[in-house]
């Protein structure tokens, strides 16, 4: 099921938490929602899940609009809210049955679905405990289980892996990837490696506006324009000469000696493939020995920082 967000705006007083954003998510796509705190990720998710109305714009889930058919929209969405609110006084199984009933899972299927979810999220050991007695990781699993209980077409997960240990994080990411094959998933997170590991597409949002949209690779290339190379050149007479000759190369922008690495240089350049050849030729002609040359990949962290700090 497809989600189309069009010209969505949400105002709190005079502040625009979400400012006229539009995007689409296709079936079978896992969309990662990135952004600093207060960027509008959670607000956007709350609007898609019909928790609050937008100030302007509309969201269509499949053929249903959140403004006209909220009930139909809600039936097709599984939602894990930000801080995962749960009824502390209910046992896990009872809670899952309750949510299944509210979601309109047919009576005869409820037990089956609950059992499936317990296995899927690894809650078997804790299933008879009250939710209030569970650790944060298990509570998070309960939150995920309740989101998926009615086998929704769309999953909206607000920071799904907070509070989980590294093993659980890997399991949950795997689960999200698997679900993402047949379902539409939107997840928000602060953890950039998580987006790279789980998402097909990344949406970076800052101050209520979309600042980047694309796959991790595309984003990297966009930001890439400039690339970094790490080289080590032995047998050179002195490093100043190396720096000045490297600077003469056409595509090289900056050369910095690396303090920690003897005869090492950090080269900031355009089109690294071409530059690498040039550097090699230069070394040959000058009789230097090139002992190391590593292209340094632009990290998602850098892109994120660049796009979201003013």
């Amino acid at each position: 099921m497809k989600i189309s967000v069009s010209n969505l705006t949400k105002k709190y007083g005079s502040q625009r938490a979400v400012d006229n954003i539009s995007f689409e998510v296709q079936t079978g796509e896992v969309l990662g929602f990135l952004g600093p705190n207060g960027a509008g990720k959670t607000t956007t998710m709350k609007i898609i899940t019909c928790y609050m109305a937008p100030s302007d714009g509309d969201v269509k889930v499949g053929d249903y609009s959140i403004l006209e058919n909220p009930e139909e929209v809600k039936k097709n969405i599984g939602y894990l809210p930000e801080n995962n609110p749960l009824y502390e006084d209910m046992p896990v199984l009872e809670y899952l049955e309750y949510v299944a009933e509210l979601q309109g899972v047919p009576k005869e299927k409820i037990q089956e679905r609950v059992a499936e979810m317990v296995v899927l999220t690894g809650l078997n050991v804790e299933k008879h405990k009250k939710i209030g007695e569970l650790s944060k990781g298990y509570r998070q699993r309960v939150g995920l289980a309740q989101a998926m209980i009615h086998d929704p077409e769309i999953l909206i997960l607000d920071e799904p892996t907070t509070g989980l240990d590294p093993n659980q994080i890997i399991e949950i990411r795997k689960l999200i990837r698997e679900l993402g094959r047949s379902k539409t998933v939107i997840l928000s997170t602060h953890i950039l490696s998580e987006v790279e590991a789980t998402c097909d597409r990344i949406l970076i949002i800052n101050e209520g506006k979309i600042v980047a949209d694309g796959t991790a690779d595309v984003l990297k290339q966009q930001a890439a324009g400039e690339e970094m190379l790490r080289v080590q050149i032995a047998d050179a007479a002195n490093s100043d000469e190396v720096v000045s000759s490297l600077m003469e190369l056409e595509k090289v922008i900056m050369v910095d000696p690396i303090k920690e690495l003897e005869n090492g240089f950090m080269i900031n350049c355009k089109e690294s493939a071409e530059t690498r050849k040039e550097i090699f030729k230069l070394c040959v002609s000058k009789n230097w020995v090139l002992t190391q040359m590593t292209p340094i990949e632009t990290k998602l962290e850098d892109i994120f920082r660049e796009l979201t700090t003013n």
Partner: peptide, 14 residues
Amino acid sequence: KTGTIELLFTKPIT
């Protein structure tokens, strides 16, 4: 207060 209202509001109930 606990935020569970968000769960209820996002379920298909009026």
